[in-house]
Computed example of a mutant assay.
Amino acid sequence: MDIFKLKPGMSHIYPVSPENYEAATGQARKYRKESRTGESYFAVCPACDNPIQLIGLYKNTAESGRKPYGKHTCQTIPNLAEYDQDAYLDCPYSDPRRTPPTARRKAESRLSRQIIQLLHDQFDRVIHILSKETGICFSTALSKKMLEGYIVREGWSFRNAAPYNLPWAFVEGQVALPLYGQRICADCALHDAIAYNYPAARFEETPAYNSVRILQNAGQYVDLSFAFVSHKRSVRDEHLFETIDFWVYRGIAPKMETVYRNTLNIQTDYFLNLINLPDERSHRNQKLLDIADELLKTRL
């Protein structure tokens, strides 16, 4: 992997390099281990919170010209991170030759409990990222409906779900929802696609800044739906590539017509770095946090 963090949990993510490692760790002893073959350098996997060893940080690796990278140690590193086999098996950076688990993750697993707690604490930021990614200004009622659907399908048990990708994994497997009557960002790609591909729809300005509501022209009917599909992960040259498609369509199965479809690139550090912003740069939505507490508190 080409990124690391210093501790389990919601901590900052850094690209692997000697400069970043030195500045982040302050050269503290807890991140190093001496042996007869030399000194090893350790950190934490951003995807599964297991300990990793940084390979080739100061010495060339066996592969000619290969950049420094992180590799799972598959053992606990005292005072740094405890090894969790289940979390390792679900990690996109784990051994690509392994056979991935087919059963759902258990609700009592470390990752499941961490995801539920994170969604409880950061639900407003999950919705904020989805809004920026899609152009939909999710209402409080729609956000609550999405959370209720997540709980019904026990989204924390999906094998692709992890703390770093929570906003996008939150909508994986979600039932399609109607877009009619919802607010969207004015002049965004979604707005332009609906305006071009669906003449039955009209847009009404709202008091909210730079948003319009999707309605219908007189005598016509709007049946727009949206869903999130095709969540994919792969690792190439130690870098994680992860995407999910945002899909807006008209009609009902099997006669559906795509109005807008966009592949969302999931950045490993986007969500975790957002929730580590200082308080003075954070804008929280207490209504959404109250909804999350109401629906999730019994599962914590």
Rank of each mutant, 00 (worst) to 15 (best):
V175T: 14
V175L: 12
A176L: 02
A176G: 05
L179H: 01
L179I: 09
Y180M: 10
G181D: 06
Q182R: 09
R183A: 10
R183V: 06
I184Q: 01
I184E: 05
I184R: 03
A186S: 13
A186R: 13
D187K: 15
C188R: 10
A189F: 15
A189I: 15
L190T: 09
L190Y: 05
H191S: 11
A195I: 06
Y196Q: 08
Y196F: 13
Y196R: 07
Y196C: 12
Y196P: 05
Y198D: 04
P199G: 06
P199L: 08
A200E: 07
A200F: 06
A201W: 03
R202H: 07
F203M: 08
F203S: 04
F203I: 11
F203E: 01
E204P: 05
E204H: 12
P207S: 12
P207N: 10
P207R: 13
A208C: 07
A208N: 10
A208W: 15
V212E: 01
R213N: 04
R213S: 03
I214A: 00
L215Q: 05
N217D: 00
N217F: 03
A218N: 00
G219E: 04
Y221L: 11
Y221W: 11
V222F: 00
L224A: 03
F226L: 05
F226A: 02
F226S: 00
A227I: 00
A227H: 01
H231G: 01
K232C: 00
R233Q: 13
S234T: 13
S234L: 12
D237S: 14
D237M: 11
E238A: 14
E238T: 11
H239F: 14
F241T: 05
F241E: 08
E242W: 08
E242Q: 12
E242S: 11
E242I: 13
T243H: 07
T243S: 09
I244F: 02
D245P: 10
D245C: 08
W247E: 06
W247K: 06
W247F: 13
V248H: 00
Y249A: 02
